[in-house]
Design a protein around this nucleic acid. Sequence first.
DNA 1: CCGTATCCATTCCGATACTG
DNA 2: CAGTATCGGAATGGATACGG
Lengths: 152, 152
Amino acid sequence: MNARPTDSTCPVARTVDIVGDRWSLLIIRDAFDGVRRFSQFQRSLGIAKNILATRLRHLVDVGVLRVEPASGGGSYQDYVLTDKGKDLFDLIVSLRQWGQDHTFTPGEQHSVLVDVATDQPVPRLRYTTPDGTHIQAHDIRVRKVNEAAQPL
Amino acid sequence: MNARPTDSTCPVARTVDIVGDRWSLLIIRDAFDGVRRFSQFQRSLGIAKNILATRLRHLVDVGVLRVEPASGGGSYQDYVLTDKGKDLFDLIVSLRQWGQDHTFTPGEQHSVLVDVATDQPVPRLRYTTPDGTHIQAHDIRVRKVNEAAQPL
DNA sequence: CCGTATCCATTCCGATACTG
DNA sequence: CAGTATCGGAATGGATACGG
């Protein structure tokens, strides 16, 4: 979708090449919120129909969305997240949490994540290792492919 | 930076409006990797100088980067992450992990996150609540601002 | 080395009109 | 309702030249 495919060995760059544009990210957000139909996406996003069609086709092509026969019994199709698409959940959460922290004034209202069972707001989510350690920027660095791995 | 500022009550949309474009995300990635100088960004990204200058200025304007007097003693300036910018760490991690999982063939090499202390690869990071519960897509939903909050 | 200014090609986007 | 086709304007991107 984007300009020059980065064909990089950096996973960040590859992800950005696939879903790193405004409309794709917002479509995926809506899909997580249960939006399935063409017209729903269009109203929610205020996007022109032609470019919505282009983006949906792209997201289907890359395996983030798939088309389903129909939900409301209509003669058309729904767009739903594949497993690959559902794995973008963490990405959407990251966008959401940063937005909550840095783009709203203290008293300003915004949508929130709630637990489906209790309907109570979800507390701040943090990235942790399997043993429960919270990982922050200064704990890690990136090792490029050409760097030697540390022997045990 | 982007087309129509979404002025939405959705934190995802606001974040996307600020840093949701290809170059900004890659610049931020590089900043986390220790890139500070104009020429370093340029070589790393293969980006034209004029648009690099535009993006850096934008990121400074929105408070993600700030300019520092100079690092190498030169007469110019460095671009470093502010605290607000460092909070984008989780977002970059999300992009990276999804890219690792879904854009590489099994044997294909890519850069990896390593622990700064041990130089060992970091295990997969998961979003958890403060009490250690791992949260996935089906555990939550989005409550819009106009929905009533659940009374206790 | 660090940008800014200019030019040009390409892409993107939105509005509209049209088809099944 | 769910798209496709077309068109014009705007933004983006790259190359180059220039100045601090």
